[in-house]
Structure formats: C-alpha cells, structure tokens
Amino acid sequence: MKDVSFGQYYPAKSFVHNMDARVKILAVIAYIVAVFLVQSVTTAQGVAFQFLGFGACLLFVLIATLCARVPFGKVLKSIKGIMFFIVLSAILQIFFNASGNVLVKWSFITITDVGLLNAGFLVARISLIVLGASLLTLTTSPVEIADGIESLMYPLKFIKFPVHEFALIMSIALRFIPTLLDETDRIIKAQKARGADFDSGNILKRVKALMPVLIPLLISSFRRADELADAMDSRCYSGSKVRTKYKKMRLTWRDLVATVAIAGLICGVVALNVTGFLAVVVLL
C-alpha cells in the first residue's frame, strides 16, 4: 500500500516546488500539447526529425526534474504503473498496422516498418506525457493542486458554476487518500491476523476475499464523512461567501522563467515539425 508512486508528493525545496501551482498546471497542459504537436509522418526520411521533437520534450522533462531535485528513479516509477498499457498499445501497433513496407510476414502476422515506427512513436508519446504529469504531482502537494484548480476555474463562476464547492469536494477527496490508505492497510493486517488470504486462488476467490476489507472500509468512510460534516457545521462553515485564503498564490520570477521555457519548447517542436516537413518535401 505504501508504494503508490503515481500522484505521490515528494517534499523538497526547489525551483519547481516553489513555483505557483496554477502555472505548474498550465505548464503541464502546455507540455502535453507540445508532445502532441510532434507530428507523425509516414516516410522514413522524416523520422529523424520527429524523434528530435520527442528529444526536445525529454530534455525539457530532464531539466525540470533536475530543477525539482526529485530523484530520477521516483519519476521513472510512474511509468511502471502504466507499463501494461504502454506495452499493449505498442503490440497493437506492431501487429495490426498493415501499411508501409513489409518487414516480416509469418502466417497472419505482418510487421511493417510503419507499424514499428508508429509503435515507437506511441510509446514515446505516452511515456513523455506520464513523466511530465508525474512531475506535477511529485512537486505539488494535493492541497496546492486543488487551490490551483479552484483559482483557474474562477471564470466559471460567471456561469453560476459552484467553483468553491467543487474545489472543496476535490480537496477533501485528496486529503483523505492517505487516511484511507492507512486504514486499508490496518484492516488488511487485522483480517490477515485472522487468517484471511488475499494472495491465492482465482480472480473470483480473490475478489470475495476482499469483502472483509471493503465492508469495514465503507462503514468507516461513512462515519468519517458524518464526523467531518458535524465538525464543519459546528464551525459555521458557509461555503464560498466570505472565505479568504491562508496561503495566497503569487506569481514570481520563477513562473516567468518557466513560462518562457515552455513557450520555447512549443516553438522548438513546431520548428522541428516544419523543418521535418520541408525536409520530406525536398527529399521527395
């Protein structure tokens, strides 16, 4: 239970940790856009340029990781979580892409150069996105993320969207993840001590074995929700009307530097796309 890496905050003092959460969220979105801007081209000559685009994104993540003082292992661990998904999409691309030059043909399996390229492309794209996103959660505490999203959604207030309540729901949910993990851990241990076995048998048996964990967990969640509601009521919590923030978010020089860097990345990727496209045209 303790090694859930994706979405885990890594406390440290660094350039990235000290950035404004709103800028970090926007930067991650911009970064994902940059990764998607790297174009897929089907001719072999264009390939080098495309992977240069990914190279630029990778370089960006590496530098950001260095600036964040997060160990590389921690960031890489996030990919492990979705390894299955990555491998599956790569396999689908390799075996079921019929266009391009055939490299291997063996009964119903056909492997083409385009299939291989697309697979590599997809793996690079997914991995880069996950790396960037995990950097956000590693350097920004859940509370900061919730605050940032609330602030970013502020314009929606004008169409009567309950932004504050939405943010409250989100931060309560995030706040209770560690509590629930601890609780799950404790209940699993208690049932194990009574001989429960969670690691053997077929799927059906394992799901059934989880009932003695899920029922107490559900009950205690309801109890917790009740208690929290009472606590909020007794302090006259009244939603968004007149609440001020304990931590004001402020833009600093760091945010400016990061904005310039991410703008540079997007420009670089677009430039590589254009030159790659031109190169293909010229070679043809």
Partner: peptide, 9 residues
C-alpha cells in the same frame, strides 16, 4: 488491533 470493532464485517 487498536479499535478492533472497526474490523467487523
């Protein structure tokens, strides 16, 4: 365990 009543199911 501590608060064993919380493990009842």
């Amino acid at each position: 365990f501590q608060y064993p009543e919380q493990q009842l199911f």
